[in-house]
Amino acid sequence: MHLAQSKTNTREKFFVAGITIIAALSSLLLIAVVFFMLQESLPIWLDTGGFKFLTGANWRPVAVPPKLGIAPMLVSTMWVALGALLIAAPLGFGCAIFMAEFAPAWLAAVIRPVLNMLTGIPSVVYGFLGAAVLVKFFEVTFDLASGESLFAASLVLAVMVLPFIVANSEAALRAVPAEYRYAGLSLGVSKPYFALHILVPMARKGMLGALVLAFGRAMGETMAVLMLAGNTLLVPTSWFSKGEPLPALIALELGSATPGTLHYQALFAAGLVLVVLVIAVNVIINIILRRTRSGVNSI
């Protein structure tokens, strides 16, 4: 009896030790990815210079000597992502308020799985539909030679991040204590007034978090921007010019860059910039949300 007991005990200890080690290792994955990218791109930061790399307006990686500046792609990335938020935020917040306050229960129960299904559609399908339908539409309507633009990419990205904005904002809105609803409505305030002037201000941190999360997604999205943004290496001058965001640059050029060359290293430096941007966004959202765990402000 005693023997059997100690045997299971040892087995249990092994099991716990095993999963603890796996958990510790798995948390190292992210650090390993970042470190590896840093190591691969080190010559860019040390020899070419980080500032020159980030602000250089010319990308001619195979010229002699190569010119490696990612400013056009950085600007494109930001422009596309911010543009997507500009379009998606009003609709997303509107839909979240609708689901939390206005929708009949059955309709909200229909919309919720639909949001899930929309996130399940792969980005290449969004990119394909955008390119085959939207870009065609722009070309025909505005008589353009090619309808690809940062705007087209933003539009499709907006649809892609919409479900995230809705789901997270709705959660924040629902976390507002019910007493405020009773108090507000019993004072004779109309429902839209209540939603806009009481509910939203109370949930604003959670809603901001939803926006920041969507921003991170939009920056890192590859296929849609690859198929829609037009892929030119010039610094974009308006929402309607073409551009090539960082993910598209990496996807397009990685296969042709010879390992060990400056071109190859520069692509890893570009990847590192992208990761750092996205992680920074993640950290910011964590700080925002940590202060108020439910996403609701106390007054």
């Binding site: 994955l29 992210l30 990815v33 990218m37 991170g216 997604r217 920056m219 890192g220 999205e221 590859t222 993910p247 990496i250 996807a251 990685l254 692509l267 890893f268 990847g271 992208l274 990761v275 996205v278 992680i279 966004v281 993640n282 950290v283």
Partner: peptide, 12 residues
């Protein structure tokens, strides 16, 4: 935070 890594970076 890993859920936020852009998929192209994983590819890289």
């Amino acid at each position: 935070s890993m859920t936020g890594i852009p998929s192209i970076v994983v590819g890289l």
